[in-house]
Every structure is written in C-alpha cells, then in structure tokens.
Design a protein around this nucleic acid. Structure first.
Length: 557
RNA sequence: UGGGGAAUCGUCUAGUGGUAGGACUGCGGACUCUGACUCCGCCAACCAAGGUUCAAAUCCUUGUUCCCCAGCCA
C-alpha cells in the first residue's frame, strides 16, 4: 500500500483551524473533550461528535477527555453514565481523563464569589415568570431587575446563604451582570446558579445550588486546558457568553469554541427527549432496541465500531444544516461486514424440498467456504440429506424467464451441494405450496457438473434433519417519514412494519452455538448477529444484501 | 435592518481568483457456485441578479431562501 492509498480521515474546517493554530504556534498541542450530559443514551449524532473530538485528538497527537456535564441532577442518572462509558469504549476511543463537571463544583463556586466581588454578578429575587417579562423579546430590549444594583456585601451574603441551603428552590438566583439591552438574549444577565434541593448522583446532598451550563462549560473547559471546544450550531449565540465568563473570571486558559452542524439522518430521530419517549411509551423495547439510532441499539443490531466511524468520516463536518441518507450508513456497514462476516446458510421462510432420488437414510458432509474472497477464514462442514429446506421465495409456480431459481422443470444449484431439478410440488387445502419434489444429479456433487452445463441460479438450503430452529428479527426503518421530528406528533409516523419477527427459521447447525461478537452473512439474505437478550436462539438482521432482483421485480410490477 | 448562522449534483462533501473533484444513491454493462462482492461506464451541481477581473463557486453590491435564539435545560 502506497502512502496515497492509505485511508485518511477527510479534512474539514475545524481541522483546518487546528492545523493553522498549530502552524502559527498559537498551540503546540491539541486538547479536546466530549461532554455529554448523562441524561440519556448516546445516539448516532453523538457518534459524530465523539469521532470528531477523539479523532482530532488522535490525528493531531493530542488528547481528548470524556466529561460528564452533570449540572442538572434531576435529569441525570448513573445508569446513563455507565452506558455512555461503555459506548465510547465500544467505539474504540481512549480518553485522557474521565471528568465530571461536578468535580469542579467548588472551583465554580469560588469563581462565582470572585465575580460577585468584581460587581459582575448579583443575586436576584425575581421569579421565573418575572425573569421572562424582564428579559424582553427578540426585538425589544429587556429591563433591569430591581435587584441588579444590590451591594456586593449583600450579594455575597445572599449567595453564601443560597449555598448553605437557607432558601427554597426558585427563591433566589445568581445572575451575571452584563447587558439587558443586548440583542443577544444570552447576554441579558443570564442565570449562573439556581437553587435546586436535589440529590446529585455523585455529590449527593452536598450542594443545594447548581451552576448553569453556560457558566459551567467554559470554566470546565478551561480547567481541563481544552484548546478547542467543539459543540453544535445552536450554541453559536452562547459563544459571547462563553468568552465573557472566561474573560471575567480570568482563567489562564481560554479555549476556542467552534460550532458545527449536528447530524440529522433521514427517517430517524436524534433527540434524547424523543428517543426517551419512544422507550417510555413502549414503541420500542428499550434504549437498545435494534431499531433505535442509539449506539447500543446499533450495536445490538449488528453495526460495528468500524462501520460507525467510517460513516462519521464520510458525512463530513460543516456548519450547514443537512440530512444524511440512510443509504450512507448502510453502505458503511455493508462494506465492513462484506469483508469480515462469516458466510453461512440460513433459511428464513422455509419451504420443504424432498429429493426423490436421494437415498432415504443417507446423509453426507460437504465442505463450504467461510468467505469466498478470503480463504484464510477457512471452511466448515455442512450436512446434506434427502429432505432440505429452501427459501420460499426461491420457488415460483409461474416463473418469469429471468427468474433464475426453482420452478417445475428448472434446474438450480444448491450452494456447495448438487444440482436439483424441480419435478412437482404439493399444495395444501388453502392452495399454498408446501413442498417441492425434486431430482438431484449425483454427478454434480460440490456444485459443478462434469458435462460443464451451466446453471444460472444458485440457492441456499439447509438439511431438515440437521438444521437448528431459530427466530430471526428483520428490521426496517422505524419511521415512514423522512423527517419525523418536524411533524406534529412524530409517533404518528412510526413504521408499523419496522419489526418482522420470524420464528420458524431453519439455520445450518454451526449457528447453534455462537456469540454476539461474531457477524454472519446468511448468504443471499443479509447480515445477521446473535441477539443474546432473547431466551431462544435469535438473530437480528443488521442490514440486507443489495438485491438487484428485488429491484427488477419491483420495477416490473 | 432584533441578533447569530448557512446556501455547490437527488443526498453528503471538496474547492480559499485559473479545467467544478470525490462519496452515497440512481441508471447501463462485465464477471460470478451468493441476483452478493468486484470491475467498467453513464447521469447529475455553484440560490438569484448585477459588478470587479484576461479569468469568479471563490472578491464586491443588492436580493432570496433556510436554520438557531425569549429554560432557574444542556
């Protein structure tokens, strides 16, 4: 592999900024951070941020921290902390430090006192509703609170009593003294600390007051010596406040906040609140339901870390609002799985086939390749016998000319086995075909004929006697609308067919004992992975194979 | 004129005054013991109008459209 052929992460405007900062000597190292709030599970949108932050740290030989932005205890939970740690690890990234904003509560408090002493912050007794009135509107300036010119001594006293827990929730608020007339609402004396008598998953009941995001985030970044603080577009308006706080508290380090567009995927929801709703209302089985765009859902679905990181590389990083097509994600997983997945045979919708001229009590062992393009993956044995199952879709009573599968009088190859020709079929009372009668050609063992005759179709099969019973979950998109979040009630657009649970599948014997870490391609049907949450042997379909026949078939209809 | 952002193939994305390139999708075809994979080919874009220039996606002007902001959420 030459240097040019090496797979490299495409550059983007943020990497350009960082490269410039390195070249100019503004920084001689790079420090980033991924700062989730532990109030839900990570989803594919977070993966973009993770890949960006950790990827930049890796590529510029810097470091990236994992920091839990845990300043709102009522919404946060240790369950989420642990899930997030698992997900980041699973994606394959290593953090320099694992921190919590709550680690800095004391420093944050001390800085707040400094702000008060400088006359840059004051304790306000306005109610939430009054605050809203005083804030003004998008077009009209706000007006100053009567408490705005409270004396420094009084502010200090009140703030220390807030901290001591003397007041009820909402009674007082610490606010920055900036500019009630600012066209940027975030600068109209934003809240710094609110009173919240809530139990925190890490600090317990130690703090009755909690710092706000805008105050906490920038200082936490500074404490960790972050050089580039990457966040999503909606925080652009917060950047002046980010800078204001750091300027006023005079931290030695002043990180640069840079905003990029959050990931939006068609037919998908990426909002923790809405994902949470799907879980609590029972539309899915949990945060890790394989239809969920969560990291844990994707993992259970059979997506690999490689595929998700590849996806994140492909979609790029810009400031432009955009919607990525699902096909891009599917392409990433197909590419990875095509290269690495073990090939096996599994019949999803079985149709019994009796091979009339095959000896009754005979069975034989055939050798199958585990990967057609990669002999190093070895071979395995599969059993053949008189009665087998094939895919229901592989037989058509009235088959069109281009249907290279079974129909009466047509010959196909059974993968790695023999050529068979269908001679007859059996229907049940309802008219459904329930069994095929076929003849096999003993000369074609292994799948080729001595006379060199061509057989266009090759189908997969399993021996009835040797097959294992299994359930297989076929998944389709969760929503029928390309942008469900933009509709009134997104649950109205749930796809009723997002899960097709098959319970009568017949798989080759080697699948009886497997783990969730092994990815399979069921030849001709798709990629699958074991679901160990199910009681019985169950596989989840990660993604289908590309299917040009299905496409042709659809066009003809 | 409230403030802050963004506009390039169907969808993402390069481009930073000098041949608009790549990926995904789509459409053809070759190959094939997976209608998979692989390979080959094709279709397809600079928001608009002016201006500067030998030369504009890029610089200037004026518009247009879209996104974000009025939590004691992050």
């Amino acid at each position: 592999m030459s240097a040019e052929d090496e797979v490299t992460t495409p550059t983007n405007f943020i990497r350009n900024i960082i490269q410039n900062d390195l070249d100019s000597g503004k920084h001689n190292t790079v420090q980033t951070r991924f700062p989730p709030e532990p109030n839900g599970y990570l989803h594919i949108g977070h993966a973009k941020s993770i890949c960006l932050n950790f990827g930049i740290a890796e590529d510029f030989k810097g470091q990236c921290n994992l920091r839990f932005d845990d300043t709102n205890p009522e919404k946060e939970d240790i369950e989420y902390v642990n899930a997030i740690i698992d997900d980041v690890k699973w994606l394959g990234f290593k953090w320099r430090g694992l921190h919590h904003s709550s680690d800095y509560f004391q420093q944050l408090y001390d800085y707040a006192i400094e702000l008060i002493k400088q006359g840059k912050a004051y304790v306000d007794s306005l109610s939430a509703e009054e605050m809203r009135e005083y804030r003004g509107t998008l077009k009209a300036p706000g007006k100053e609170s009567p408490d705005r010119n409270r004396s420094i001594e009084e502010n200090l006293d009140l703030f220390s009593r807030m901290r001591a827990g003397e007041f009820k929730d909402g009674e007082y608020l610490l606010r920055a003294k900036i500019d009630m007339g600012s066209p940027n609402l975030n600068m109209r004396d934003p809240a710094l600390y609110r009173i919240k008598h809530a139990h925190h998953q890490r600090t317990g009941d130690e703090w009755p007051i909690y710092p706000m995001y805008d105050y906490t985030h920038c200082i936490s970044d500074a404490i960790e010596n972050i050089t580039h603080s990457l966040c999503t577009l909606e925080f652009e308006d917060h950047r002046p406040l980010y800078d204001w706080v750091l300027d006023e508290v005079k931290t030695a380090c002043h990180p640069q906040q840079i905003e990029f567009a959050r990931l939006q995927l068609k037919y998908t929801i990426t909002s923790k609140r809405k994902l949470n709703q799907l879980v609590t209302e029972g539309h899915v089985s949990g945060w890790d339901d394989p239809r969920m765009p969560t990291i844990s859902g994707l993992r259970r679905r059979g997506y690999t870390p490689t595929s998700i990181r590849d996806f994140c590389d492909r979609i790029g990083v810009t400031k432009k609002d955009s919607f990525i097509e699902v096909a891009v994600l599917e392409n990433s997983i197909r590419e990875d799985l095509n290269e690495h997945a073990m090939r096996v045979m599994g019949v999803l919708k079985p149709l019994k086939v009796t091979i009339e001229n095959y000896p009754e009590d005979q069975s034989e062992v055939l050798v199958a390749q585990n990967h057609p393009q990669n002999p190093e993956m070895g071979t395995r044995n599969i059993s053949f016998s008189k009665v087998i199952y094939i895919e229901r879709d592989d037989f058509l009573e009235d088959a069109p000319k281009k249907f290279f599968r079974l129909s009466v009088g047509r010959e196909v190859r059974l993968r790695y086995a023999y050529y068979i020709t269908c001679t007859d079929f059996v229907k049940d009372d309802s008219g459904e075909v329930v069994e095929l009668i076929c003849q096999y050609d003993p000369e074609t063992k292994g799948g080729s004929s001595p006379d060199g005759r061509k057989v266009k179709g090759t189908i997969h099969w399993v021996s009835a006697e040797h097959a294992v019973d299994a359930s297989v979950n076929l998944y389709d998109r969760l929503f029928t609308h390309p942008n469900p979040a933009a509709t009134g009630d997104f649950t109205e657009h749930l796809n009723p067919d997002s899960l097709n649970a098959l319970t009568t599948c017949k798989l080759e014997a080697s699948l009886a004992d497997t783990s969730t870490s092994i990815h399979y391609q069921f030849e001709r049907t798709g990629y699958f992975v074991r679901d160990d949450k199910a009681k019985s042997l169950t596989f989840n379909r990660t993604v289908t194979l590309r299917d040009t026949w299905a496409k042709l078939d659809k066009q003809n209809q």
